[in-house]
Design a protein around this nucleic acid. Structure first.
Lengths: 197, 197
DNA sequence: TATTATAGTGAACGAAAGGTCACTTGTCAA
DNA sequence: TTGACAAGTGACCTTTCGTTCACTATAATA
């Protein structure tokens, strides 16, 4: 199947780009990892850059589908404890899903070179999470669970420390357990600070 | 002078590595940017990797000299307003000094490939700032300026959002002004939350 | 002054890169 | 059964890469 190979190429590209970067990846190795010879790849993509652009297209579409729409917002927690649980659930997925990890790494490595990677990186690493939690905190304020305050500021203050530790997990995977504990401790501290007792 | 050229090579390497990454940088361009021909570079470094290692040595030494010792700790602020001023002063330097910007970019680009870059990245992006502000907050608690709390947790909660915006400046320099305003707003919000009025 | 080490040149090299092309194979519709 | 087409192969091309080397110019040293 043409489509199958085309997608397998993208999957292999994600893996290699996330480890060695775009410039550090060569088509021979990429093809070999799929059991093809390099000219086979050129039957599906006209150039290395075309692979890169298709991969970015896919990442952008994936992001829009999964995080970009209001439909996929997690429900507003009904308790402070549930906020921590929700947070830990989201974090667990994001630091253990290989594909998501590789996506973050690719965006990290190519953010200075490619405009679209740069924009997606900002969404992934900063504005995306902040927007989601702005709504969550606004909802929790309405429910009287957390102190009235600027929900966007709280979301920023809540998500960026977590993001920093997620980056740490990407960089030093052996510290993942520690980072998860630290995120949970941070979440509880946050709740203790802003939550209405 | 041998030493002069040797250091100019490192400076050029920092610039090119920070823009194109190690794999994306070639010795011809690097030499040309110094007005040399590429074989001239090999009179000073035996290989591209040797340049990379020397650059890392320099970055590690620079970090140890400027941020690693207790001597260079900023003084503990005497007021909440001064905490914000101190913060903005440090941030201004860090987002406007080209050499520091390039250092962060290099560490960002090479963190998955090189063990030493990985470790230095964690210091730069996470533990370094947190340690500095842990001392500052401990001092401010002693002075009765901010509420008694775990100073390391406060430092983490204070520095990582700022770090996130510094990364944003590296990625999208045109947003620097906005980011600086946001950092100041965040600092004041933090002070309003944890400061003793 | 003669010598020697240093910095820099320019041509060349082999390896590896991205990409092309004529060709084979297998599948499916006419 | 045959024709057409998509998928994959292997040899080959060009360019670029990191690296080497014989050589020159210069400036300090003995």
């Amino acid at each position: 199947m043409a489509n199958d190979t085309k997608e397998r190429i993208l999957a292999a590209a994600l893996e290699m780009f996330s480890q060695n970067g775009y410039a550090g990846t060569n088509i021979r190795e990429l093809s070999a990892s799929l059991g093809l010879v390099k000219s086979g790849v050129y039957k599906h993509y006209e150039s290395k850059e075309a692979i890169w652009n298709a991969l970015l297209d896919q990442m952008i579409a994936y992001y829009a589908d999964h995080f970009g729409s209001v439909d996929h917002l997690p429900p507003v927690p009904d308790s402070l404890e549930e906020l921590t649980r929700l947070t830990m659930h989201m974090v667990h997925i994001t630091v253990h899903d290989e594909k998501i990890i590789m996506t973050r790494k690719v965006l990290t490595l190519e953010q200075y070179r490619d405009v679209r990677a740069r924009e997606l990186a900002t969404k992934h690493f900063l504005t995306g999470l902040t927007e989601i939690f702005t709504r969550i905190f606004a909802g929790m304020m309405d429910k009287g669970l957390i102190r009235r305050d600027d929900p966007a500021m709280l979301a920023f203050a809540y998500t960026t420390p977590i993001s920093a530790l997620i980056h740490l997990c990407d960089r030093e995977p052996e510290k993942t357990e520690d980072a998860l504990r630290k995120i949970e401790a941070f979440s509880r501290h946050f709740v203790a600070t802003y939550g209405v007792q």
